[in-house]
Nucleic acid binder design. Structure first.
Lengths: 215, 215
DNA sequence: TAGATTGTTAATCGATTAACAATC
DNA sequence: TAGATTGTTAATCGATTAACAATC
């Protein structure tokens, strides 16, 4: 599909390009040059042109890029015009917060089910979903064919749950547990969030700063 | 303090080393070689030795690394033996979930306050904290001198809130809003989480997989 | 001592930046 | 046409991997 497989560094920047282009569009920008965008985003113009060229020629010499065309194109590359059915596993504090905080539609997903093992949680509402007993998972998957899953179960249960879900046809994991899922194996897409590692990194940043290593 | 300033790529791997070493320690490992660790973590042995050498010589030729010494050392480098006072701004769904889900102590932080503007939320309990009115923020900061902040406010309020907090002495931000805080300016440490970007990346991963680009 | 494994230097690889011809 | 800005090639920089002498 794409010219050559796009490097991971580029992919990691795409969502941010998409967000910035959305803001520009909202602010009435019709065109933008790589230079102007580079200043707004804190990148080099060179890098931006290299990045955009990975997936075709969207600019026009002497003019720049059309903001809304470019945004739509990146959105398409990211798969944001899909409606991939997704389920939530583990509807505790974190699972519930994520399910209600995230705009799934605009990210190419559709949250169609939520599951838990805890009797206190089963039956509760999250947005327009009712939390189901995990015993219903298999049947639900047969009937509704979800393709993606959010893992908010306790870390200890994560590996088994992931294997079960793969068996039920899940192809993408948004993993909030501490279990390090290896991406890519068996054609499974994985995004590990690891909030703990993120806070740990902040600790390093703060402390190294205090010891004089400005960045 | 450290030999030479450690590269960002290395820093991003440190929390993961720390976690794996903790698990090894729990499983009774006393020593481990770079080769053995590389297999468990999916890295090269070379990279591991290079990484550990950034901050001194912890191994012993012919033996390997002492698991608990190495773990303690990395923990120290990460600042995990600190107790940096931290506050939460925005105690809605997400803020509440993060505050109750994360083990702050083990990450070098101490959550000492939570604030919101919403009258329905103010006064509610989160763990052993009571959510305060944001009007009390200034006085609270004068009295308790928090150094780090979790930003879970609406994106629109983020920039102003960040500036206010910097004025009140905050030096580190764990930012969950969509406002792109530029790290490093004015000696401020920033960790942007961007859950939306994370889910967007998963969408790309899933769709590129379906179009045949196994990774 | 012999074997194992580090610390470290050198080689490779990939990503970023610079430069510029192509062209709108 | 002249000016602007891309697409793309070449140069630089940094990170990863390989190799091996040092040494426990």
């Amino acid at each position: 599909m794409s010219k050559n497989s796009i490097s991971n560094s580029v992919i990691r920047r795409l969502p941010r390009y998409y967000r910035f282009l959305g803001e520009l569009e909202n602010n009435g920008y019709v065109r933008i040059s790589s230079r102007e965008l580079s200043e707004k985003m804190g990148l080099t113009a060179s890098q931006i042109r290299q990045d955009f060229n990975c997936f075709g020629e969207f600019g026009q010499q002497g003019y720049g890029y059309n903001v809304s065309d470019l945004r739509a194109e990146i959105g398409h590359i990211l798969g944001l015009d899909e409606h991939t059915p997704m389920i939530l596993l583990g509807a505790g504090n974190l699972g519930k917060a994520i399910a209600s905080h995230i705009d799934f539609q605009s990210k190419g997903f559709d949250l169609i089910g939520a599951f838990d093992t805890n009797a206190d949680i089963i039956g509760k509402e999250i947005g327009d979903l009712t939390v189901r007993d995990i015993d219903e998972l298999e049947q639900f998957c047969r009937e509704n064919k979800p393709v993606a899953a959010i893992l908010c179960v306790p870390t200890g249960a994560a590996e088994k749950m992931a294997d079960l879900l793969i068996g039920l046809g899940i192809k993408a994991f948004w993993n909030f547990t501490h279990y390090d899922m290896r991406a890519g194996r068996h054609g499974i897409a994985v995004e590990n969030v690891h909030l703990g590692d993120s806070l740990t990194t902040l600790s390093y940043g703060l402390n190294s700063m205090e010891h004089g290593e400005e960045e």
